[in-house]
């Protein structure tokens, strides 16, 4: 019988994932593919927003979408119907995507002909924030009915996001949603976060976001902007 040894490890459980994510980002940079990680609660309008974004970017950027869900392919069907190259990923009950799952999804999507791939993460404000997917930037959608206090309740999500889209602004008159307070709460968690108020249903405000996105993709590809 071998003797039992104590091995000190002192490693964050996120260390492996972080390294895999960094490797994926480097490979995507070499290939000139921009990966965007889109997160939000269920029902905040991720798929509708992406449909609008795809309409605006048609003929401008070659865009693909990876739909991550625990089950079903309703979102992938919606995106495919909008003419976007789409792949559906099933997490098998898991509440988030990690870098290895993202890599697998990308291989299935065959992104060589694409400029921009959007990863629609599992609808959840907690777990996806903890796992780096290898994306260049993180974007989250907060919709008006969810309330302006969400940055206080889910601090990590707002801390890791570069952009916050405040969606469903057409219903602002019917809710006690304080846009100014929300902006302040977001900046308390992340002073550099950009905030775009939008209405995915009517397309209001989407152009400001797609302008930002186009500049991002060009810079990532090393083109002059």
């Amino acid at each position: 019988m071998e003797e039992v040894r104590i091995l000190e490890i002192k490693q964050s459980i996120f260390a492996n994932n972080d390294a895999q994510a960094e490797r994926l980002r480097r490979e995507l940079k070499e290939k000139g593919i921009y990966l965007l990680n889109l997160m939000s609660s269920p029902g905040s309008g991720k798929t509708t927003t992406l449909t609008r974004v795809a309409e605006r970017l048609r003929g401008v950027l070659r865009m693909g979408v990876m739909e991550a869900d625990i089950d079903s392919d309703v979102d992938a069907r919606t995106m495919a119907a909008a003419g976007v190259k789409t792949i559906q990923l099933h997490t098998g009950g898991m509440c988030h995507l990690d870098a290895a799952m993202t890599r697998q999804g990308l291989e299935g999507l065959e992104p060589a002909s694409l400029d921009l791939v959007v990863l629609e993460n599992v609808g959840n404000l907690v777990c996806p924030a903890e796992f780096d997917t290898g994306a260049v930037k993180n974007v989250m959608i907060l919709s008006v009915p969810e309330g302006h206090d969400k940055p206080l309740k889910y601090p990590l999500m707002f801390q890791v996001c570069d952009v916050v889209l405040i969606n469903k602004i057409d219903v602002l008159p019917y809710f006690d949603f304080d846009l100014q307070a929300c902006t302040e709460y977001v900046h308390r968690r992340n002073p550099n976060a950009r905030i775009f108020p939008v209405c995915a249903k009517t397309g209001q405000g989407i152009e400001a976001f797609t302008d930002w996105l186009q500049t991002e993709v060009r810079m990532w590809k090393g083109e002059s902007v």
Binding site: E3, R5, L7, E8, I9, K10, Q11, I13, F14, R188
Partner: peptide, 19 residues
């Protein structure tokens, strides 16, 4: 309200006993 977390969000593998 100008506060930040010092410790408490960690998930670490400290050590193992193995052969």
């Amino acid at each position: 309200e100008r506060t930040y977390l010092l410790t408490g969000s960690e998930i670490l593998i400290k050590e193992i006993a193995a052969c």
